[in-house]
């Protein structure tokens, strides 16, 4: 006997919703550089956690920036989770305001490891140069 549409919806609606969320996560990973660990795509433990990615700003201590400014802390966290252009711009803008510099250079590096040689190095994911006059 064929299953009624209502029953079909009740049985498979929620799993399909879960698949839609996974598809959205894939889309954000491909287009917005969303980290695999986040977004409901179940990509945890597929690569080194984004916590170990390094934000590097020449001439500026990232630790002291984060300690003193909650907005920067949140912006840096989002930059590590999804290092797209918008998050780079937001982070750089906040750093420019906090440091009162004329220009700023923000880079995001991720760990890279070679299991044959044991070499551990850092690879640049993306970077932004922002000048005060661009704001």
């Amino acid at each position: 006997m064929p299953i009624a549409p209502k029953e079909l919806f009740l049985k498979y609606g929620i799993p399909i919703l879960a698949i839609i969320v996974i598809a959205i996560q894939f889309f954000f990973v491909k287009t917005q550089h969303l980290n695999h660990w986040k977004g409901g795509g179940y990509g945890m433990y597929t690569k080194v956690h984004f916590y170990y990615n390094q934000i590097y700003i020449p001439g500026v201590s990232v630790d002291s920036l984060v300690d003193n400014n909650n907005d920067i802390k949140n912006a840096f966290r989002m930059l590590k989770i999804m290092p797209n252009d918008a998050h780079f711009y937001e982070a750089a803008q906040l750093v420019l305001k906090a440091t009162a510099k004329d220009s700023i250079h923000v880079q995001l590096w991720e760990p890279s490891v070679n299991s044959n040689s044991g070499a551990y190095s850092r690879v640049l994911i993306n970077e932004i140069h922002l000048k005060n006059q661009d704001l």
Binding site: Q54, Y56, P58, Q107, W109, V113, S117, G118, A119, Y120, S121, R122, L124
Partner: peptide, 14 residues
């Protein structure tokens, strides 16, 4: 290593 400039491209061996 984290304390150094990553642009120098230094690496370590585990």
């Amino acid at each position: 290593l984290q304390a150094t400039d990553p642009n120098i491209k230094e690496s370590i061996v585990f």
